[in-house]
Amino acid sequence: MSAVVVNEFGGPERVESAELPVPRPAAGQVLIRVRAAGLNPVDGAVRAGVFGGAGQRLGLGWDVAGEIAEVGADVTGWSRGDRVVGLHYGPVKPLGTHAEYAVLDASAVAAAPATVDAVAAAALPLGGLTAARAVDQLGLAPGATLLVTGAAGVVGGLAVQLAARAGLVVTALAGAEDEELVRSLGAAAFVPRGAAPAGPVDGVLDAAVLGEPALGFVRDGGVYVGLRPGAAPAAERGIRVEEQEVAADGRHLARLVALVDEGALTLRVADAFPLADAQKAHALLATPGTRGRIILTA
Rank of each mutant, 00 (worst) to 15 (best):
V84K: 11
D74F: 13
A132I: 06
F9I: 11
A231R: 13
I295K: 08
L60W: 00
A132T: 04
A151N: 08
E100K: 02
A248W: 01
R33D: 15
D74H: 15
G226S: 03
S184Q: 09
R183K: 12
A159S: 08
V135R: 05
V4C: 00
E212K: 10
D249V: 04
L20S: 07
G10E: 05
G250W: 03
R293F: 01
R83K: 14
T297A: 07
L227S: 06
G52K: 06
P142S: 00
V75A: 13
N7G: 15
L173C: 10
E236Y: 03
L284H: 04
D43Q: 11
E243Y: 00
A106H: 09
E19Q: 13
T130Q: 10
V135T: 09
G81D: 14
A272Y: 00
V30F: 14
R33Q: 15
E8I: 04
V4P: 00
G96N: 10
A232V: 05
I239F: 04
G77L: 10
V223Q: 12
T145N: 01
V154Q: 13
A174C: 11
F51T: 08
R14H: 01
R251P: 08
V260P: 04
A163H: 12
A120T: 14
G194K: 11
L60S: 01
A235F: 04
G49A: 08
L129F: 05
L87P: 08
R14T: 05
A270G: 14
R47I: 04
L138D: 11
T297C: 04
E19D: 15
V169R: 15
F51M: 04
D206W: 03
V30P: 13
E236M: 12
V223D: 03
Q244F: 01
G226V: 03
A272W: 01
F9S: 06
V225T: 03
A283P: 00
V75T: 14
P25D: 11
E19A: 14
P288H: 10
L181I: 06
A248I: 01
A189L: 05
L205G: 08
L126S: 13
Q244W: 01
A231Q: 13
V269R: 13
L275C: 00
V218A: 09
P125M: 03
E16A: 12
